[in-house]
Amino acid sequence: MTGFAEFVAARGTALLRTAYLTCGSVHEAEDVLQAALEKACRNWSRIDDRDPEPYVRRIIVNTVISRARRRAILRIIPTGSPPDLPAPADDVVLRHVLMDGLRALPPRQRAVIVLRYWEDLTESQTAEILGCSAGTVKSQTAKAMARLRTLLGEEATNAGA
């Protein structure tokens, strides 16, 4: 299939990282990425003349949110698992607090943070992927950042105690 393998080779790792940050689990990220790429592969003839990355990214983020919503109905809120590899020594506490905080956010807020600060998308680009207004992205970002700031504050208080 023309271009598909090249696209995956070039962008697969970046998309896997986005999937991981959005869902918080390596295993699920690989699964979601494979499912998203499979959808893209089936529709490749229709999308390969455009940049396919936003299309795949949209599928990844919305798949993660859909799964989380379905699990929430069944009383399960995925918070992911800690990374398998040891973290570097510097800033280890800050990084762990931030990543734990990110995993603890509601799925949509987590997606907003990943798209805004990991993918560096604008509010309107983020809104387009999530199918909501730029105002909603703005308010969700503010809520998520406030939550993370609170967590950081608690951590600082605990560390100082």
Partner: peptide
């Protein structure tokens, strides 16, 4: 956050 996500 960006630093943490990159390291993670």
């Amino acid at each position: 956050l960006r630093e943490a996500m990159a390291a993670e």
